[in-house]
Simulated assay, not measured.
Amino acid sequence: MLQKMKKMMKKEKGFTLVELLAVIVILGIILAIAVPSVSGIITKSENDAKLANVELIENAAKLADLSELFTEGMSVGDLVTAGFLDGDIEIPGDSDSEVYTGTVSKTGDTFTYSGNGKP
């Protein structure tokens, strides 16, 4: 009888509670390292996209100036209406799909956007 019990015990396969807990702890450590770095990457990419959009708006103002259609304090909406931008540019990372609504000013040969969405 004792030998039958030993044979049955040897045939049992699976993971022990300690092994399962070790795997859970390791996964927790990996998550603790990965989540902050991923959120940092997302924030950096949103800021880079905002900088690129501001540069796009300023370049559209330069094009309007070359076409002699630029007026001081021209808004992003005016640039869209005049055809220098293709539609409204949404602010990245904004859950309400807010668009850029600021104005562009000119100082010498430098164009500067001021308004919402600027990082």
Rank of each mutant, 00 (worst) to 15 (best):
L66A: 08
L51D: 12
D65N: 12
V104P: 04
S105C: 04
E46H: 06
S67V: 03
E46C: 02
I91L: 11
L63I: 07
L69E: 11
E68L: 15
S97T: 06
G102C: 14
D86T: 13
V99Q: 10
F70E: 02
D86I: 08
S105H: 03
T43P: 04
E68R: 13
S105M: 05
Y100K: 10
V104T: 08
E98Q: 07
G73V: 09
L85Y: 13
G87I: 09
L63M: 14
A60W: 15
G77Q: 13
F84N: 05
T81V: 03
G77N: 14
L51R: 13
I42R: 15
S105R: 02
V76Y: 12
G73H: 04
T43S: 11
K44C: 00
M74V: 15
A60L: 11
I42T: 14
A60D: 07
D65T: 01
S67A: 14
S75M: 00
K50W: 10
L56N: 07
D94A: 08
S39V: 04
V99N: 10
E90R: 08
M74T: 09
E55T: 13
F70Y: 14
G93M: 06
N47L: 14
F84E: 07
A49G: 07
S67C: 02
S45L: 11
A82C: 02
N59H: 11
D65P: 01
T43F: 05
S95W: 03
F84V: 03
E58L: 09
N47Q: 13
E46G: 03
I91A: 13
D94Q: 06
T101I: 03
G87W: 05
V104I: 10
D48K: 02
I42E: 13
N53E: 05
S95G: 02
I57N: 13
V76Q: 11
L63H: 11
F70G: 01
K106D: 01
A60K: 09
A52T: 09
F84I: 01
A64S: 07
L51P: 02
E98W: 00
G83Q: 09
V76R: 10
I91Q: 14
I42L: 08
M74C: 04
M74Q: 01
D88L: 05
E72N: 06
D88M: 04
P92N: 02
M74P: 03
E55M: 11
G40Q: 12
S67N: 15
L63A: 15
A60G: 12
I57W: 12
I57K: 15
T103S: 15
